[in-house]
Write a protein that binds this DNA or RNA. Structure first.
Lengths: 249, 249
DNA sequence: AATTAGATTTGACAATGTCAAATTCGTTGC
DNA sequence: GCAACGAATTTGACATTGTCAAATCTAATT
């Protein structure tokens, strides 16, 4: 582990949390000397990863990070396979479809297929949602023992709504149910008024690489039984295209 | 400039160009010792910026870079201001609307408003286009003398189509015309069949922060005169919201 | 005009990253 | 099934290079 590279990434992490921040505040948060942070920041700035606001002298993320992010999306085989199946799933069910990957304790959305009814929706690619509070996250955690244990051990089950599972035992039970049905559900656990169904996607090494699911407004919950079947089937189809030997896990 | 941080960013740059690449190839391209690259890569990997492919042992970008990129978009005041005006411009003109920022020699799209006719389109946020070969790029370069000179001096006017301006003199002339009309045009210079109009956006310090423009299919070119007016007006309105003292430059 | 908060620069020291060689791992050819 | 190869990884010594504390500069504020 190279110290200065590690510190540079931590600086980016702070910048990610605080949109516009002064050099000395970054130094304080990371418990580093301002001069150390300055050297790192100037290096990042030279590559366009960080910008200095002209007026306030404070720092923020730069455009180079977006370019990197876009290349990541392009290289993701999961995403390219999910594209066509998402359209199909959205058409069949009438709901918005999301595909996500698992970060240490969050799910990151790598594709968002809007509801086919054409209602205007926010662009959601790149957003992150706590893994324990969404169907996509539970679908993946249910089949990723290490990640699940790490999350449970970290004790970071942040509460999002009244329905969020914040107790390890509660989450463990929901994951067991997810495995039983090969389908994860979510009822207003992350966002009030929003429910969801999701199923895990496996790759050629039989490991979870992602999950796909539908977003269902509370008013339309529970969804028709055919929706659950369609989500499972879509996840199985994508898994097969990725070379998964079997589905589920 | 901190050497190892600089090298880490160069490693990311190589990963950006080559989707899946071996450690020794990265080392060769950067003229570094494999062991040096290994230390950097493992640090990046620990933070999820880089992933190692299970089968081939090769490396690729990781999800953490996408998360960073998304935060950049959220912090961009240009983008939030452009959102509502883009919808309006798309509605008035009937064309897809793009907003972009200027990198050293490319334009990066930070917002894409689809054509209001509802035709299905690719998501284009995060893609980059050579600055000298698109209307957005020329709109910004025309009012950014340093960036223009740097680009002309670099001699990197890559040819995209037969119409691309690859000679410095040719580009200089087109930029002069852009300033004269306060509007940049593009006729199949980047992509065959695609034309465009764009105007620059200025911030409170009277510097160019971006550009907004419409994408026009070759078959519908030239567009009605009202389109040019609508593009200029939109750029002026966004500039005013950002606190620009005057428009153009 | 003085004060303060913050960004930046400087220079010495020692921690730290770098390099070359050695080792391990997996794959291909015989 | 064994050997040879290519590639990733590990190790340890050396010297480069990042780090820290103090000093300087800059720009707001009173």
């Amino acid at each position: 582990m190279i110290q200065s590279v590690d510190r540079a990434i931590r600086v980016l992490g702070v910048l990610q949390g605080a949109r516009l921040i002064s050099l000395s505040e970054i130094a304080t948060r990371l418990e580093l000397h301002p001069s150390t942070v300055h050297g790192i920041i100037k290096t990042l700035q030279a590559h366009g990863m960080v910008l200095q606001d002209a007026g306030s002298q404070r720092y923020r993320l730069g455009p180079a990070v977006l370019k990197l992010g876009n290349v990541y999306l392009d290289t993701l085989e999961l995403r390219s396979r999910a594209l066509s199946w998402s359209t199909e799933l959205a058409r069949r069910t009438g709901y918005a479809v999301r595909t996500g990957v698992l970060l240490p304790d969050e799910v990151m959305i790598v594709h968002h297929e809007p509801r086919p009814d054409g209602s205007r929706q926010m662009q959601e690619v790149g957003i992150v949602i706590p893994a324990h509070a969404c169907a996509l996250g539970k679908a993946m955690l249910a089949y990723s023992p290490e990640q699940r244990d790490a999350l449970l051990a970290s004790g970071a089950l942040r509460s999002m709504t009244a329905e969020t599972a914040t107790e390890p035992a509660q989450l463990t039970e929901r994951l067991a149910q997810t495995r039983q049905e090969a389908l994860a559900t979510e009822q207003e656990e992350a966002v009030i008024g929003e429910c969801g169904l999701a199923a895990p996607i496996f790759d050629a090494s039989a490991a979870v690489t992602g999950a796909i699911g539908v977003v269902i407004p509370m008013l339309e919950w529970p969804a028709a039984d055919t929706v659950a079947g369609a989500v499972r089937e879509t996840a199985r189809n994508i898994s097969r295209e990725l070379g998964a030997p079997h589905w589920p896990g």
